[in-house]
Amino acid sequence: MKETLEIIGQIFLLMGSFSLLTAAIGLLRMPDVYNRVQTGTKASTLGAILSFIGLALMTYENWVEINWVGRFAVLVVFIILTNPVSSHVLMRAAYAMKIPLSKLTTVDKLREDINNKIVEEPKDE
């Protein structure tokens, strides 16, 4: 039982590491800052969650002493709540600093609406 759980946990850890590797490759390959933040956020969030699940399975002993599982659950909730917010702030700051979008970009509704005075320009505070 314990060995099986350990192997499953290691598979989860491997998938998590692969996800984090994808995030790193994405940071290098993507053409502009906006796409880089995108790949970084999604892949690193799932990578962290999968690693925690793997660690929880590997440290499982019995139902009385699974306090690590509870701690990992709290950590997962914190990561899901905070990771998108911090990345959103980075992206918004990049837009406020007028970092250009890549040449592949097809449409920019936010710039159109700023020019039409529907939205205020995001401020670089």
Partner: peptide, 26 residues
């Protein structure tokens, strides 16, 4: 959706032609 997002991102990042078509929509 989170798992789907990651499969999607992995496909885009690792494929040699990098099939992206970015834009900002409302």
């Amino acid at each position: 959706e989170l798992v789907k997002a990651n499969i999607d991102v992995t496909r885009r990042v690792l494929s040699p032609s990098m099939p992206i078509n970015p834009g900002i929509v409302k």
